[in-house]
Design a protein around this nucleic acid. Sequence first.
RNA 1: GCGGCAUUGGUGAAGUGGUUAACACGCUGGUUUGUGGCACCAGUAUGCAAGGGUUCGAUUCCCUUAUGCCGCCCCA
Length: 447
Amino acid sequence: MITKPKGTYDIYGEEAKKWKYIDKVIDEVMDKYNYNFIRTPIFESTELFHRGVGETTDIVSKETYDFTDRGNRNMTLRPEGTAGVVRSYIENKMYGEAIQPIKVYYNGTMYRYERPQSGRDRELTQFGVEVLGSDDPIVDAEVISLAVNIFKMLGLKGIKVNINTLGDRESRDKYRETLVEYFKPHINELCEDCKKRLEKNPLRILDCKVDKDLDVMKKAPKTIDYLNKESLERFNQVKMYLDTLEIEYEVNTNIVRGLDYYNHTVFEIEAKIEGFGSNNVLAAGGRYNGLVSNLGGPATCGVGFACGIGRLILALDKEEIILPISNKIDAFIMYVNDEEKKEAIKLCQELRMNGFKVDTEYTNRSLKGQFKQADRLNSKLFIILNSEDLKNNQVKIKNNATKTEEIIDLNYLIYYLDEQLSDFEYDFEEEHDYCLEGNCHCHDEEE
RNA sequence: GCGGCAUUGGUGAAGUGGUUAACACGCUGGUUUGUGGCACCAGUAUGCAAGGGUUCGAUUCCCUUAUGCCGCCCCA
């Protein structure tokens, strides 16, 4: 048997419905915020990620899917979304468009060569946003609130927003130096991993799980103390706007993002759910004011976030949130002989073209089997074809809710179905009792 | 890249160094000469991840590989 590659997933059936629903919510919320969809290639020149994401980050140095194409070009399957969007921004000269800033969102697969575990696959799906061309803290706040609101819209409750600031380039570099100087004398107190981090990525030491209780850690200099006046002011404004939007957050000075391009605001949204795995960061992002120029574009500010949909679904499942996904069909058409079968396929087409969700029998089951099938499909109505009735241009219809059965003239069928199915409207409401908390998307219009 | 634990039918799984690998769900058929969801009956894995080894004999013991899960590194 040929199996799927390690760390990849087939998504189908009920699971696929969840993904489609989440995609729909994302599309709708993005539309309200007036972010436009952007689709960039799944593979790009290897150089893009090296220059964009950072040479030294593990994600680029050892976790990318690299290959050379038949023309000997070095290519890489994208490990994240921002670099491609920024490349596109530059290449398509979006900085010259009339409407600024550029607000875009993406939703697609990313690839990282990692050891899979819960909440971590080699092929992962992320959606995210990028806003290019505004340095205003109001955008930082909007982007964070956008992520939070999508989670709320889906009904997710156990989330926590952590924010921090790395300051501008100057502040960040100064802080980095200070931190290295601070830890150097204490190097022997640190764990093996942190010893390596001191060289490679000193900011990450602050996030260490092993050493987090050490005295050295607690007394370590904080990013906030090394901000210049302007950076501090920026950060305060971001917080002020978040307060205005009533987004709850916590300042966590240990948050540093792994990718090199971040400066100023960085944030993480984590799932605070009992028993959730160690990969509990659902979304993360921040500001990257140097990235566009790094990649050869004009000096342009940017801010964005990315969210792993796989993890998001794990979180929704963990909270036992049932998404409002319809598992019903309007009608199931049954038949026994060939004459009826022909009428069945014809009727299917006609009803489908009139907007009904209709299915029929495909495996020559007995009528009893067809009833079982119809019931399994949660069909609201059963249409039973019978040669005798068909001679009179009639069909038998059984309402699966009321169990009543009527013989209907084919000329009035559409009207009859409309009428019968309207009774199920109440049913739809009942089905959604679980989301009356006000977070469910299907009640938005009422509010 | 490192460590620990797993892998039995369509599904959830029990189990043993030795004749027919439990049980349940599902599915198909029947009881009902065209009416399901209940009930009863029958059928439904020549095979226990793959390859190799130990053995008279392995699904059961050992090794290798693959995949999955949990944690670390890293990261959304």
